[in-house]
Design a protein around this nucleic acid. Structure first.
Length: 630
RNA sequence: GGGCGCGUGGCGUAACUUGGAUAGCGCAUCUGGCUUCGGACCAGAGGGUUGCGGGUUCAAAUCCCGUCGCGCCCGCCA
């Protein structure tokens, strides 16, 4: 079991409140759950933990809240960790016995270490997280960075909270964009002179210009059709280009610390006949139909009016149906995604074959779907989190609705579209087609972003007096740069659109990743100077009522923060907490000498150790590696 | 025509799901702090009718209705 001292105290307070309410007002009716909901942590001048329960009770008791709060406060039995009870503005405020609570907390952190903050929220349930699914003919741009970082952080958070997480990447190697790249390969050039993803991305922009010339688009459409036959020459060439591009993109992914367990290729979904199986089931259940005449003649469609009861957003659309399979027999993206989700939730038998692609730099292997190979089990999940931009809400809604129509409500509800806001750049939208990701001097690509930020970090690191050996400049600058980028992308709410700015990306001050790293490194150095080792029991008798206890309280809420972040799929909850934690440590550090703390030295070292451990755990949730020195 | 998201000091944002005490933080501006554990820091100042108008409530940035502005989506493109 994971310990959570804050939750213990909150439960204790709730219990005391319940008893006090019962003895002060016999007629009061309020559940323990309702009481728990009224409990918050107020500003420290007011108390350590507080309840607004009197406001709730005032309705049923028909008395003013101030009077109720005063009465309840009077009836609270002090003891345990509850040291003082007071009433102010109808709130019941409690101060906690700081020494007892601090002892509990320091011990918990020291015992659990990397596990401090973990929970069993997920109960071992399997969840598949899909990201960033970049088309295999271009480099990652800053929008893909946001996607990949969100996916990584959410995976980490879910895993930390007891889910069995499968990190999956979807490679769309059958789309129009691949046919375009094939055309470029055949007609423009097949001799890359730079990193292949970058080169293909640039060529793709050229192909889009060429497409305006007569006949070109027809040629591309024709080869798209040929690609769908897995044995064609076109299919083989495309797969080869795509595989080489994915290898190049993986260099970027690894540089960012983005890893996967499995990579599913769209052509393998078709090859493994998942599509046929999925459509058979859908047809048998009558959720799709193929009209013989009219607007949708010979296409396979889902009628939107049928799903309107499950997704009211789809009612009143201009189109009355969503095409699943085109009249020429080509499946749309929704069809493949539907089949893929049938597979994810184990509704169709798993006919995928996998081969090991490589061992990633983190040591874990990545398995890709392939024509031949072994069977594995990455599916049969309870939850599927799809990290996809908000622009695709409509398709994701149709997808969900199809499962409602199948009568599988639990699956529909288990499909979670994490609709993150699109990333724009100062000039406007990022378009791979039009090439707006290409800048002057530096592109809005993941590679250039990291290179630029690292260069800026190197400037600062190389001037640091704290780092003696110049050989470590590079790796430290790299780590600082990654921390800066990751924090910058993850600190804001996922659903809000963001405008990428070089100025902000290159800043290492304020609410930033480097600030969090910095406080961690500071703590590390203090502990290192004292060769600090936790010795089994924390002596908290010299924790007082100053910034030391403020820091204790901040560390104590980490398990709750981690749970909230995981259950809401919001890494920004962690980032927000990290700033508060770092700031709290800085205040403690400024106001209370640690090594020269006299009698309080041991307790403060233990506190510094707990801070470092907690900050380290939080950093890792966002995919940021802590640094002992910077 | 329908739908979704967003709107918070000059700029970037948090809190909104679950209403609660003086709307939190960063950048920028101004002031102060290193012979003392790491100044990528800390302390302090100024700057807000939370787009606007109603409503619900003891209590609204938060919930409801309306309205305006910005972005996105509703293709046999992906």
């Amino acid at each position: 079991m994971h310990s959570n001292p804050y939750a213990q105290v909150r439960a204790e307070f709730a219990d005391l409140l319940k008893k006090a309410i019962a003895s002060a007002f016999r007629e009061a009716k309020i559940s323990e759950d309702e009481i728990l909901q009224t409990i918050t942590t107020p500003k420290s001048e007011l108390g350590d933990i507080s309840s607004s329960v009197a406001f709730r009770l005032s309705k049923t008791l028909k008395r003013n809240p101030h009077e109720i709060a005063a009465q309840v406060a009077k009836h609270i039995q002090k003891g345990g960790t509850v040291a003082e009870v007071s009433e102010l503005n109808s709130y019941i405020n409690v101060s906690i016995g700081e020494k007892k609570y601090s002892g509990m907390l320091l011990e918990s952190v020291a015992n659990e270490k990397e596990g401090y903050g973990m929970s069993d929220l997920g109960n071992g349930e399997r969840v598949i997280v899909e990201f960033p699914s970049v088309n295999p003919n271009k480099p990652w741009h800053v929008g893909h960075v946001r996607n990949a970082l969100l996916g990584t952080a959410i995976s980490n958070m879910m895993s930390f909270c007891g889910y069995d997480v499968v990190r999956s990447d979807y490679i769309d190697d059958l789309g129009l964009q691949m046919a375009e790249s094939l055309w470029g390969w055949q007609h423009l050039s097949s001799k890359p002179d730079k990193k292949l993803d970058q080169w293909l991305g640039e060529q793709y922009v050229e192909v889009n210009k060429e497409m305006k010339k007569p006949g070109v688009e027809e040629e591309i459409k024709a080869s798209l059709k040929k690609m769908e036959d897995g044995n064609s020459k076109e299919a083989k060439t495309v797969r080869e280009i795509a595989e080489r591009c994915v290898a190049a993109q993986s260099e970027t992914a690894f540089a960012y610390g983005v890893y996967h367990d499995t990579m599913v290729w769209e052509s393998d979904i078709v090859r493994a006949k998942l599509l046929d199986a999925a459509l058979d089931i859908a047809a048998a259940k009558g959720i799709i139909e193929t009209p013989k005449s009219g607007k949708y003649a010979n296409a396979t469609i889902v009628r939107l009016e049928r799903v309107a009861e499950f997704a009211k957003e789809l009612a009143g659309n201009e189109e009355e149906a969503k095409v699943i399979v085109r009249s020429n027999g080509a499946a749309t993206y929704v069809a493949k995604d539907f089949a893929f989700h049938m597979w994810k939730f184990g509704l169709i038998s798993d006919s995928f074959r996998y081969k090991k692609l490589l061992d990633q730099p983190n040591g874990a292997p990545i398995y890709v779907t392939a024509a031949e190979g072994e069977r594995m089990n990455f599916g049969r999940v309870k939850k599927a989190i799809n990290i996809i931009g908000s622009a695709q809400k409509y398709e994701q809604l149709v997808l969900k609705s199809m499962f409602y129509l199948l009568g599988r409500k639990e699956i529909a509800e288990g499909i979670i579209h994490l609709a993150y806001g699109e990333v724009k750049v100062e000039g406007g939208n990022l378009s791979t087609r039009q090439g707006t990701w290409i800048g002057s001097g530096r592109n809005f690509t993941a590679d250039d972003l990291l290179r630029e930020v690292k260069a800026a970090a190197y400037e600062i690191v190389s001037k640091s007096e704290k780092i003696k050996d110049s050989e470590s400049f590079d790796s430290i600058a790299n780590a600082v740069a990654l921390a800066a980028i990751k924090f910058e992308f993850l600190k804001m709410a996922p659903e809000s659109a963001m405008t990428f700015s070089w100025e902000r990306a290159l800043s290492f001050e304020g609410d930033s990743g480097p600030y969090c790293l910095y406080t961690y490194a500071r703590a590390a150095r203090v502990l290192e100077k004292e060769s600090y080792k936790y010795v089994g029991k924390a002596d908290a008798s010299h924790i007082g009522r100053g910034q030391d206890f403020e820091l204790i309280k901040m560390i104590a809420i980490f398990p709750d923060i981690a749970e909230k972040a995981a259950s809401e799929h919001r890494p920004s909850v962690i980032a927000d907490y990290m700033i508060k934690l770092a700031s709290s440590f800085s205040k403690f550090y400024e106001t209370m000498p640690i090594i020269k703390g006299g009698e309080a030295k041991e307790a403060r070292l233990a506190l510094t150790y707990s801070f470092k451990q907690t900050m380290g755990n939080a950093l890792r949730l966002l995919g940021i590696e802590p640094l002992e020195r910077m």
